[in-house]
Computed example of a mutant assay.
Amino acid sequence: MTDAVVGLEESEAVPALRVGDRRGFGIDVGGSGVKGGLVDLETGLLIGDRIKILTPQPSTPDAVAATVAEIVAQAGWNGPVGITLPAVVTAGVARTAANIDKSWIGTDARALFSAALGGRAVSVLNDADAAGIAEDRYGAGKDVDGVVVLLTFGTGIGSAVLNHGVLLPNTEFGHMEIDGKEAEHRASSAVKERKDLSYKEWAHEVSRVLERYEALLWPDLFVVGGGISRKAEKWIPHLSTRTPVVAATLQNTAGIVGAALSAETSIGT
């Protein structure tokens, strides 16, 4: 267990809400930090502060499970827990591992986390899928009646696809080949930084990727997330897609919110 505990993130505190009947607890496991929080499932807003503990190194299944248990204990939460992983997750089992230890591959994550939490019910799902269901239910996609595609731009490109609120889990559109390159090798925000592209130059590459996605899926809306979405006004106007593109609104809380929602609705497995 790491002792590098950040604890309550006061600098990112969310104003306390009146607690309603529908509450959930979500945990978002990332390569650098494991973050959790109590969620008002009526509004999709956090109740109080997030709790964060640095991701243990190495980020083995047992070490991460202990970190998750510590966050839940700090919060004093006794109900079901939704947990995201940066991995493809099917039937509760992690099938890939991105930015976490490769020993996760083949691990029954649902059983592992349930045991670490005293046998309680848990839901485990891909991190981009969690962000997607959160944005679709509470954020930028909440008023869209149709196909919503969430894309997170960071080191790679994460994706989530929802049709009338129903998730198609574990899409990996960042790995789709586009003109001889994987999409994330062409248009991730990491590529922008590495090549020192202007926002307009980078938007041209993003457009090539989005145009391929829209040719295959015919979505009603693209929602773009990741840190670079905070500067959406600098690049979204340069995109050439026919499909509307909007910035994600939940930002850093989307994974936690989507995880908590999955625990209530069994969207995760």
Rank of each mutant, 00 (worst) to 15 (best):
T253R: 13
E205N: 12
A87Q: 01
A190I: 05
L167K: 05
G226N: 12
D108A: 07
L85R: 02
G37A: 01
F173D: 04
D179H: 12
K102L: 14
S11A: 14
A69K: 08
V144K: 10
G119M: 11
S266E: 12
L221C: 09
A263Q: 03
E12P: 00
A121I: 01
L17A: 14
I47A: 07
L150Y: 15
E42I: 00
D101C: 10
S198M: 06
A13S: 15
V149L: 15
K181L: 15
V68A: 07
P244G: 12
I51V: 12
A140F: 10
H175V: 07
T67L: 09
E182D: 12
G26Q: 03
V223C: 07
A121C: 01
A134Y: 06
Y213D: 02
R110C: 03
H175M: 05
G141C: 05
V149P: 02
E264A: 14
L217E: 02
F25N: 00
P58C: 02
G44S: 06
L167W: 07
A16D: 14
A116W: 06
L210F: 15
A183Y: 09
R50K: 15
T241Y: 06
G268P: 04
I157L: 06
A131M: 14
G79C: 03
G37H: 02
V206I: 15
E193F: 13
S114Y: 04
A98D: 09
V257Q: 03
D220V: 02
N163L: 15
P237W: 11
A130L: 05
A121M: 09
G92P: 06
E184I: 11
T243Y: 07
W77I: 07
E184N: 13
I178C: 07
L250Q: 08
